[in-house]
């Protein structure tokens, strides 16, 4: 992979610039979706465990 990155950047600057732009934009969009899903999963898990604790009677506020 190192060879590909160094060769492309040296041989074809225009293609390289478009590749960098596309790679970063695509990574940003994918990461945005993945982290958003992780956050929702975390919130859902926290809600499930929080409810279980309340049912057990540990965290109930009078």
């Amino acid at each position: 992979m190192n060879e590909f990155l160094t060769n492309l950047s040296a041989d074809n600057p225009l293609l390289w610039a478009l590749f960098v732009l596309g790679l970063v934009a695509a990574s940003a969009l994918v990461l945005s979706i993945v982290t958003g899903m992780l956050l929702r999963l975390g919130t859902a898990l926290a809600a499930i465990f929080g409810r279980r604790k309340t049912v057990d009677g540990d965290d109930v506020v009078p």
Partner: peptide
């Protein structure tokens, strides 16, 4: 980004690692 990448002054591996 386009201008700096065109003059070969961007390391995409470093950028994607930090982006994650």
């Amino acid at each position: 980004t386009f201008l700096y990448a065109f003059s070969d002054n961007v390391d995409p591996l470093m950028a994607v690692l930090m982006l994650s």
